[in-house]
Simulated scan of single mutants.
Amino acid sequence: MSIYSFCVFFSGVSFLGYGISYFVGTQMKNEFKRFQLEKLGLLVIVLEILGAIGLLVGFWFYKPLLLLSSGGLALLMFLGLVVRMRLKDSLWISLPAFFYMVLNGYIFYLGSNQ
């Protein structure tokens, strides 16, 4: 398995797990309340799940879907990072959003150059 393949699968599975956690627990809903974005929580989670599915399906069948999904997830994580900066969250707490922004930017970059 190439590094690119691993990155796509890692990101896709991570976002699927993150999305599912919104529906089975309260921690994610509490985070959106803390961000004062509880009305957008469901939309964000649906976009993340669609992005995850788009990464996985796009990897095998339709490359433009992979590019759209990775670009969308990178943008979503950038916006999440902005929200965390506005709340003055620590670097440690903001690190996952930064990591997934860079990871999906990397997937987008490599996918557009293949």
Rank of each mutant, 00 (worst) to 15 (best):
L16M: 15
S21H: 10
L43C: 01
F108Q: 08
F35P: 03
L103W: 09
D89Q: 11
F78H: 09
G41D: 10
E31I: 13
L42S: 08
M1G: 09
L37P: 05
L73P: 11
M77C: 14
S21V: 10
P64L: 10
I49E: 06
K39V: 11
I3A: 15
F61A: 13
V102S: 12
N113S: 04
N30C: 13
N113R: 00
F108K: 03
I49D: 05
L56K: 08
V46H: 00
G12L: 11
G25F: 02
S90R: 07
G80R: 06
L42A: 14
F78Q: 06
I107D: 01
Y4G: 01
I53N: 01
M28V: 15
G17M: 09
L40N: 14
V102C: 11
Q114E: 00
A74C: 15
L75P: 11
S14R: 03
Y22M: 06
L42Y: 08
G51Y: 02
L95K: 06
F59S: 02
G51H: 05
K33N: 12
S11Y: 05
N104T: 06
G51M: 09
F99D: 01
S90W: 10
F61W: 14
I93L: 15
F10H: 02
R34S: 10
V24W: 09
S11K: 08
Y109Q: 08
F78D: 12
G80C: 06
L66R: 00
F15A: 03
G80V: 07
I3W: 06
L56H: 03
V8E: 10
F23G: 01
L55H: 08
R84C: 04
L47Y: 04
S11V: 08
V44A: 14
Y18L: 13
P64I: 11
V13R: 03
W92A: 12
L43Q: 05
L91I: 11
K63E: 11
L16W: 07
Q36S: 15
N104I: 06
Y18W: 14
K88G: 09
F99E: 02
L50V: 12
Y4D: 06
S90A: 07
F108S: 11
F23H: 13
S21F: 12
V57L: 12
N104K: 06
S70I: 04
N30T: 14
L103N: 08
Q114G: 01
Q36F: 11
Q27P: 03
S14I: 12
A74T: 03
V8F: 00
I93H: 12
I93G: 05
I93V: 15
Y62Q: 04
G72I: 08
I20F: 13
L16I: 14
L50M: 15
K63L: 12
F23E: 03
L110D: 00
K39S: 13
L95D: 02
I45D: 07
F98I: 09
F59I: 09
F99V: 14
M77W: 13
L43I: 14
S70V: 07
G72F: 07
L79A: 14
L65P: 03
W92P: 00
F35H: 10
L43D: 04
L67Y: 03
F6K: 04
